[in-house]
Design a protein around this nucleic acid. Structure first.
Lengths: 194, 194
DNA sequence: GTCTATAATAGGATAGAC
DNA sequence: GTCTATCCTATTATAGAC
C-alpha cells in the first residue's frame, strides 16, 4: 500500500491537454502549449503520442470523460431520490462553472464539436464518453424503480439537457440555466414516478 | 419591389464564414478558406473586415443567430399548441442534422465554446443570439396562455435542451436524442398548462 | 473594391544527441 | 525517456498595384 505516486510525465501531458482543450477547444490548443503546461518537452509528448495531436486529443477526451463520470457517480449516489440527485448534479455543475469564472464547462463539448465528422478517432471517443454518462444516469433511475425504457430515455434527456444548460450557462455567464434545468428535470422525472 | 439582388461580396464572405465555423469551429476555420469558399480574395475579406478574424467571427455568429431565429419563428408558428410546436422544432433539427450527414448542428455552439472567456466580442454576440432564441420561445409560450414566469423559465430550458440534444445527436450520429428530448419537452410544457 | 505578393509568426512534426 | 534544434507548412495580416 502507500501508493500515491506523483503523476508521471504521460499523465501530466494528458491532464494538461484535457484542461486546455476544455477551455480552448482542440484546434485552439497547440502541442507546444500542452508541453509547456505539463512541464514536459515536445520530445516527450511525441514519445508518448507518436500518433501526434489526434492521438493526444483522443487521450484527452477519454481522460476527461472518465473524470466527469466519476464526478457524476459521486454526486448521483449522494441522494436517494433520483430527481433530487439530478438537481444536485445541475447545482454542482453551476457552482463549478461559476467558481472557475465560467471557463470550465463540459470538458469535451468543444473538442467534440470541432472534430465531429473530421477526426473519427476523437469523434468516437466523445461518443463513448457521452454513452457512459448516460448509462450512469440510467442505472440510477432504474435503481430508483423506474421502468427500463423510461429510465433509458430519461437518462438521454438528462445528459442532453445538462449538456445544453451548461453551454447556455457558460455563454451567458450565469448559473440560472443550469439551476432552472435542474428543477425542470426533477419535475420531468417525478412525472414518471408513478 | 423586384429586389432580389444576388449576394454581394460581403454577404458571401459572411455566409461562408458562418457555415465553415459551424462545421469546424472558429479556430479550425482559416480566413483563406473563407475567402476561397466565398469566391472572394483575401484582400476583399480584409477590406470588409479590417478587424480581422475576430470581426469576421462576430459577423458570422450574428448572421447564424439571425438565420436560426428565422427558422425557429417559422417552425413555432406552424403549430397552435406550444408543446407540439416545440416537438416539431426538435424534429426539424433532427431531420436537418441527418440530411446534412451530421455536419450541420447548432450554427454557433462550436465558435461560442472555443472563444468564451477569450474573445469578448464573439462571446457577446453568441450570448445575444441565445437570448434572442429564448425570447422567441417565451413569446410563443406566453401567447399560448402560460404565465409569464413559467414561460420565461420553460423557454430557457427549451433552448438549453434543444442545444444539448443537438450536440448529443451530432456526436452520436443519431436523431434519437433530439426526438426523445422533443417528447420530454412537450410533456414538461403540458405539465404547466393547467 | 479587387487582386497578388509577401511579411511575420506560429503550427505540427521529426532527427538525433544525450 | 528527455531534450534541443530544425524543417516545413499554414496562419494572420499588410502593402501596394490595378
Amino acid at each position: 500500500m502507500a501508493n500515491t505516486p506523483q503523476p508521471g510525465t504521460r499523465e501530466r501531458i494528458v491532464s494538461a491537454a484535457s484542461l486546455l482543450m476544455q477551455r480552448q477547444g482542440y484546434e485552439g490548443t497547440g502541442i507546444k502549449q500542452v508541453a509547456q503546461e505539463a512541464q514536459a518537452t515536445l520530445g516527450s509528448v511525441y514519445h508518448f503520442f507518436p500518433g501526434g495531436k489526434q492521438a493526444l486529443g483522443v487521450a484527452a477526451v477519454q481522460h476527461a470523460g472518465q473524470e466527469f463520470a466519476d464526478l457524476l457517480s459521486t454526486t448521483l449516489s449522494q441522494e436517494a431520490d433520483p430527481a433530487k440527485a439530478i438537481t444536485a448534479c445541475a447545482r454542482a455543475l453551476a457552482t463549478h462553472l461559476r467558481e472557475s469564472e465560467w471557463t470550465d464547462g463540459c470538458p469535451i463539448s468543444a473538442t467534440a464539436l470541432e472534430t465531429t465528422g473530421r477526426v473519427p478517432d476523437i469523434e468516437q471517443a466523445a461518443a463513448q464518453a457521452f454513452q457512459h454518462w448516460q448509462d450512469l444516469v440510467a442505472d440510477t433511475l432504474r435503481e430508483a424503480g423506474l421502468p427500463n425504457d423510461d429510465a433509458h430515455d430519461l437518462a438521454l434527456t438528462v445528459i442532453s439537457t445538462l449538456e445544453g444548460a451548461e453551454l447556455t450557462a457558460q455563454v451567458s455567464k450565469s448559473e440560472t440555466p443550469l439551476l432552472v434545468a435542474g428543477e425542470h428535470l426533477a419535475r420531468l422525472i417525478n412525472s414518471y414516478k408513478e
